[in-house]
């Protein structure tokens, strides 16, 4: 601890850490900074969650809650289990042979890993946006209509498509090209199309796993604005390796890291979780401080 805050540390390092911290706290979203310390309405309740791939425990002992209509950011170094944890929220891990969740992961008080739960129902309520924009090889219109169709939703499809594309801030750019292949869109447009496709099935939660990782800064800014708008109606959990992004968009931030056990195996664990402002300006854990100030990770 004292060593990490040594004022006599080499000049270059302390410069770097200072700028790192200054930048991040400077971009904190003022509106979102007022989030109360305790969560008002709990959507997810995780109690002692462990996630395994076969015998390998990728995520160890996570206890946390996710608040309704909040944007929660997961940050931490690569390989610490952020994606693994996120994918357990809508049972996407079920698709990986050997993946298994232990502990309680409750959605509005219902354990989503209870035997009677249908993973398809879970995924309909809890949508997901991935790192690479995975539009389907179909028209723009068909991409948005796919989810409502497979879920048998009785809706006016034209209206729904327009509504979702409008909410995803894409309508004006594509309204004359709805029949065109989605592959003709740019990466940023494709990612907004994926978001439109996701909200078309009317989920309550949107999970986003590094949604801007393959986008340029302008496209990233658009997605971030969109997330803040969507947070009025949806609960959003976003994994990001970009701390500035976490600071810009989120209400709460969870910092994860990977601990090495006696056998040399790395297990992801939750180090610190709290309102984004306190995580970035006054972290309790020295490891959080080190990470956000750019000293490791």
């Amino acid at each position: 601890m004292s060593e990490l805050h040594d004022p006599n540390a080499p000049q270059a390092t302390s410069d770097l850490s200072n700028t790192g911290r200054m930048d991040v706290s400077a971009v904190l979203d003022e509106g979102r900074a007022s989030v109360p310390d305790s969560i008002r309405e709990v959507v997810f309740n995780l109690d002692d969650v462990h996630i395994f791939y076969g015998d390998f425990e990728a995520v160890s002992d996570v206890t946390m809650q996710i608040g309704k209509n909040e944007i929660t950011a997961f940050i931490g170094p690569s390989g610490c289990g952020k994606s693994t944890l996120l994918r357990s929220f809508n049972r996407m891990n079920d698709l990986i042979p050997g993946a298994r969740v232990e502990g309680l992961l409750a959605y509005h008080g219902f354990n989503i890993y209870a035997p009677e739960v249908d993973p398809i129902e879970v995924r309909r309520r809890i949508g997901m946006v991935f790192q690479k924009p995975n539009v389907f090889p179909k028209s723009i219109y068909e991409n948005v209509a796919y989810g409502p169709k497979v879920n048998g939703m009785k809706v006016n499809m034209d209206d729904l498509v327009e509504d979702c594309l409008t909410r995803a801030a894409l309508w004006d750019e594509v309204k004359d090209d709805l029949k065109k292949s989605a592959y003709a869109l740019s990466g940023g447009q494709q990612q907004r199309l994926v978001i439109a496709r996701c909200i078309a099935v009317k989920p309550e939660v949107i999970l986003m796993d590094e949604p801007c990782a393959s986008l340029d800064p302008i496209a990233t800014a658009k997605i971030e604005d969109l997330m803040k708008e969507l947070a009025a109606d949806y609960t959003i959990v976003i994994v990001t390796h970009n701390m500035q992004q976490a600071a810009r968009v989120s209400d709460r931030t969870a910092f994860f890291t990977a601990d090495v056990d006696a056998k040399g195996v790395r297990h992801g664990r939750l180090v610190e979780y709290g309102p984004t402002r306190s995580i970035f300006t006054a972290p309790n854990e020295p490891r959080t401080e080190d990470y956000i100030s750019g000293r490791f990770g």
Binding site: L95, R123, G127, F130, F136, G147, V150, N151, C198
Partner: peptide, 10 residues
Amino acid sequence: LRDGAYALGA
């Protein structure tokens, strides 16, 4: 693409 479909409840 498969993940995208499953994530929509397909």
